[in-house]
Structures are given as C-alpha cells and as structure tokens.
Write a protein that binds this DNA or RNA. Structure first.
Length: 287
DNA sequence: GGGGGTTCCTGTACGC
DNA sequence: TGCGTACAGGAACCCC
C-alpha cells in the first residue's frame, strides 16, 4: 500500500523522465481513474495534451506534475493499489491499466506514463495550483499537512494538535490533516517502536512520548524510503515495476502470533477503524 | 468542528 | 473442483 516512502520512490522515479517533457497523447480507459477530476475525461485530456511538465512534487501521499504555461498540475493519488509506470511507447497494455499519457522528452525520447490501479481507489486529475507559503500546491492538497520528513514540518504544532484530540493516537496519526504520509503499516511500526498502545488517547500522551513517537515515525519512514518502500505483493512497485524491500524489516505489522522482536511476547492483531492493528501487548501497554 | 463509523473496489485466500 | 465469503485499506463522506 503506497504510503509516504512508496509515493516518494515513485515521484523520484518519474522526475528525470517527465520534467521538460511534452505531452503528446492522453488515453483514458476507465473513467473511475478520474474521480478527482469532476469535469470528466474529455476535459482531462484537453487540459493535458500539448502541455509540458515542469517538476515532480509531493506532499504526503499526493504527487503532482505542474504544467508549463498554466497555473495547474496533473495530480495523482495512488490510493491502495495505484501504480505510475514508465514504459516504452510501444509497450502493451498493463494489467488494470486505466490511463496512459504519452510524453516526449528532449533527451530520453518517447515514453509512456501508465497509471494502473487494481482496486480503483487511486485517481488522477488536472487541478489548479494556488500559492501557499511561497510554494504552489494543488487545491486538492491544501488540507494535507506537511509530512514529518519535510524540513518545514512544525513539531510544536503537531504536539499542540495531539493535545486537542481525544481520539486514539493511531487514528490521529492516520489523519492526513494532522500529519501526512503515514498509512496503516507505518502507523503500526512507529507505535511499536515508540512503545505506545494504538488506542491511547492522543491528548493523554506526555510531551516525552510525543517526541519519541515523532522520532520513531521519522526513523521508520526514512528507513523504508532507503529500502525502496514496502511490498507484500504486486500492489506496490516503483516506476519500473520493481518491488521494495522494507517488508523484510517489519516488527509489528502483519506479524500477529509471531514473537515481538523486543520482548518475545506474541504480537496481537485487533480490528481498529475497519482495518488491522498490530501491536505488542507487553511493550505497548494500554493505559 | 471533533468524533467515529461507513463506503467505495477487486484480487486473493480461505472454508466448506 | 467450485462456490461463497472474508479480507486488505486511503480518504471522502456522513451523521451525531
């Protein structure tokens, strides 16, 4: 499932191929891939063809490619199973291919950006860019907080936000308006590393515990990024279709019944927010 | 506006 | 073998 490290791997993979390239063709095979583009497929195609990409940007799990000569960008959210693949222009259709964007790069020549998505929770759109703190971000990304690896991330504001929330800490760190980039896997891993029970009310965490959590979130995200992201199956791959290695480094997520790497107690899986929550009942005591 | 539950979707892994 | 069902979860959306 694409969380911050996976989306960043995709962004970094797209960057050298798309920046400076012009869009020669756009094909939409499944309009469900455009749920974020209310004006429909024809409008989507019209706003892209003939334009050029100027950058590859990201905030949290959103990535976007600003367009030259227009205050707008192609934005993408991968949802649970979305993939952005770079392919030769003659490459055959990918499984679950939803949208194909043909580009021509001055150095790399012709390429195809293929958006493939099994579960169709991801989508693309062309969205207006607006000013925010010296940078331009898509309107659909305005409500997304900065991620903990962003140098402008405000630790004090994060602490204050937690102090205002009575919800379970896991729910709060999954809220992209509070801190972005964290999904179910890295939430479980970070809480395990910080020895915090996922259902601890956020406002009950001590300042020291919040600092510990934030530090562990950063360690987990940075390590996953260095290892190319987490892959369990074919759901997450980089732009070349290759899997990441972080799944081998997981301590809690998906390890129910197996010993906690720290104390040996069996990891527990509970249903929380309609998804799995994995933790060590000894190291992560409920208060 | 915080809080928490529901909904969208499809491939895979099960149990019977 | 074949069918039905549970499961995976990001985030918008809804009502309280």
């Amino acid at each position: 499932m694409p969380e911050l490290p996976e989306v960043e791997v995709v962004r970094a993979g797209l960057e050298p191929a798309v920046v400076g390239s012009s869009i020669t063709s756009v094909s939409v095979f499944d309009e469900r891939a455009l749920t974020r583009h209310a004006a429909g497929a024809a409008d989507f195609v019209d706003r892209l063809e003939g334009r050029s990409f100027t950058a590859a940007s990201r905030r949290g799990k959103f990535l976007w490619l600003p367009l030259e000569g227009s205050p707008s960008a192609l934005i993408a959210h991968l949802g649970m199973s979305g993939q952005m693949l770079l392919r030769a222009p003659t490459a055959g259709a990918e499984r679950h291919e939803r949208v194909r964007i043909g580009i021509e790069h001055p150095v790399h020549g012709e390429l195809a950006i293929v958006f493939a998505d099994q579960r169709t929770f991801g989508s693309l759109a062309v969205d207006a860019l607006i000013e925010e703190g010296g940078s331009r971000i898509p309107t659909q990304v305005v409500h997304i907080a900065r991620d903990p690896l962003d140098e402008k991330f405000d630790d004090a504001a994060f602490r204050a936000a937690l102090a205002r929330r009575g919800s379970a800490i896991k729910r709060v760190i999954l809220d992209q308006g509070v801190v972005s980039g964290i999904g179910n896997i890295y939430a479980d891993e970070s809480l395990w590393a910080a020895r915090i029970h996922p259902e601890t009310p956020a406002s009950r965490l001590s300042t020291r515990a919040v600092h510990r959590l934030l530090a562990e979130v950063r360690v987990v995200l940075a390590k996953a990024l260095a290892e190319g992201g987490t892959s369990f199956d074919a759901q997450y791959v980089n732009v070349n279709g290759q899997a990441g290695y972080f799944a081998h480094s997981l301590n809690a997520y998906g390890r129910q019944g197996k010993p906690c790497p720290r104390c040996g107690t069996a990891i527990v899986r509970e249903t929380f927010m309609n998804r799995g929550s994995h933790f060590c009942p000894t190291c992560q005591r409920r208060r």
